[in-house]
Design a binder for these strands. Structure first.
Lengths: 288, 288
DNA sequence: TTTGAGCCTCATTTTTTCTGACCCTAATAT
DNA sequence: ATATTAGGGTCAGAAAAAATGAGGCTCAAA
């Protein structure tokens, strides 16, 4: 036989993935975030790719990178391929562990909306094991290992309910609040990701108030403080519903403002009907 | 922000590729061949995948492996994804080096059919750089870094000409050969991959001869020996054409037998018209 | 039996990948 | 004009992943 082919070794998959992420997200920093490595690793990968190709994939400028024509031409192909790979991995995970459902959720939604529903869900589907991962930003479901996402968003697809806000406080404090103007005399708690809440509600209430108070980075913490009587919190309906139901919190005013965003529960793949993921999704939609 | 997502690290791409190859090819040994690593590496990859999934992907038997239901269910997705990735890499390579064409060819075709045509091709397309890699088996063009493949095969797609065989020898020897029966008195050279050639031709010639002679593993070597008068070679038209044209070899008999296979030149991707690869392919088709 | 194909194991080596610390540049904020 | 900051680049060292190579096992076919 003799003819031994001196294998021209192919491009490293990791480097290709780094390139795809950087190109798709428009920067090495963003790519390093998505892939969970340091920016230097992305730099190195792209550099090695460019070296073995003999062509530049990005133009480097001082404030970021810009895809070259070459990079631009091939990006769609890579994105499609890696999407396909991600989906295949998801499918594989599901086949391997058919009764486990992974949910990605906003921390506050995980604790204040999802968590209270879990006991009932477990009762209905004791065979399903549910894992919840909290994160600030919705993951790319084509890539990250989650079956369902639960976040607030503009997109109406998968919307469970419109986001509705209104002030809430401990029952004791509600007594002091006769009109919106009274808000000027108490602390108005707010969340760092929803800094506009008070402004929006005040405007709708046509109240001339300048709510002031501490800003929390964890909504759950703000809720706890409110329960403890620390002040008035701008409540998001889905997040305070259970505390309202239990009486720990009350709504001192009637005005509720509907925002443009919705509470959304969505998936990427199409689950077989009867699969754990589809059962969980359906139950959550029905018990909203 | 606080909420630091403890990244649930995703499955290693290399291991997934190993799984895909093993599943598609039906064995670890074959996969290790395709990926150019030792079988032990495949074993390890699959094992680590199975460990992190918590499910078996293959049933191991003493004489090979058998894909499980889980593996079977996800294989098509992975194959499609890796095919897409391979194609994207090819496209990338072409974008990066637009005027280089990589051809994979049977060693004999590379030397005896392609090589004689290269000077004329270079004259017509001096801007194109051509690289030829010889191998026994056609590569998977969706994965391996070649633009064109040149081999013999059953598939009529891309066929340039039917494979036609007939005895050839040096002019001096031809004088001794009046009828096929005379072949019994000379050495009949053959190639190890085409051991049936003599049988097929003899049957067509209705000659009662039992050709005997040395078997070569490289057809080119057999041709050289024939030119040197070592014996009679069963010639494949495409491979001996130039020696016939130069008079170094002659066909002592008129009978030519057309085989079921063809000389094939094919590609996997669709090249832009005017691209180097498409120009080379077209020229070779026209100058056949 | 013997042989051989195919897979497994494991210690060791090689290669790849990542980090961490520091430098650079340009646009924006002060 | 100065900070400041966002986005990259570089490099040496460290860590992790991948691959090797030598020996073993099992079963089927010769």
């Amino acid at each position: 036989m003799a003819v031994a082919p001196p294998r021209p070794k192919d491009l490293p998959l990791t480097a290709l993935r780094a390139f795809e992420a950087a190109a798709r997200l428009g920067g090495f920093a963003a790519a390093s975030q998505e892939l969970g490595v340091t920016p230097g690793a992305i730099t190195a990968h792209v550099k090695s790719l460019e070296a073995s190709l003999g062509a530049k994939l990005f133009e480097r400028t001082a404030r970021g990178v810009q895809l070259t024509a070459v990079g631009d031409a091939v990006l769609p192909g890579f994105t499609a391929a890696f999407d396909g790979l991600g989906l295949a991995v998801q499918t594989l995970r599901n086949e391997a562990a058919p009764s486990t459902v992974h949910i990605a959720a906003l921390p506050s939604l995980a604790q204040l909306w999802l968590s209270p529903r879990l006991p009932a869900l477990r009762a209905v589907a004791p065979d399903i094991s549910i894992s919840i991962t909290a994160m600030e930003t919705p993951p790319n479901l084509k890539r990250a290992p989650y079956d369902l996402s639960l976040f607030y968003g503009d997109d109406p697809r998968g919307a469970l309910a419109r986001d509705v806000i209104f002030p809430v406080c401990a029952p004791a404090m509600a007594a002091k609040l006769k009109s919106p103007e009274d808000l000027s005399h108490v602390l108005c708690l707010s969340d760092s990701t929803w800094t506009d809440d008070w402004t929006i509600w005040s405007r709708a209430a046509q109240a001339d108030v300048k709510p002031r108070g501490p800003v929390f980075s964890l909504y759950t913490l703000a809720v706890e403080e409110t329960v403890n009587g620390a002040g008035v919190l701008m409540g998001h309906e889905a997040l305070v519903a259970s505390h309202l139901a239990s009486g720990e919190l009350v709504a001192p005013f009637d005005l509720k403002v509907q925002l443009g965003t919705s509470l959304r529960l969505w998936s990427q793949r199409h689950f077989k009907s009867g699969s754990a993921a589809s059962r969980v999704m359906q139950w959550l939609q029905e018990n909203n």
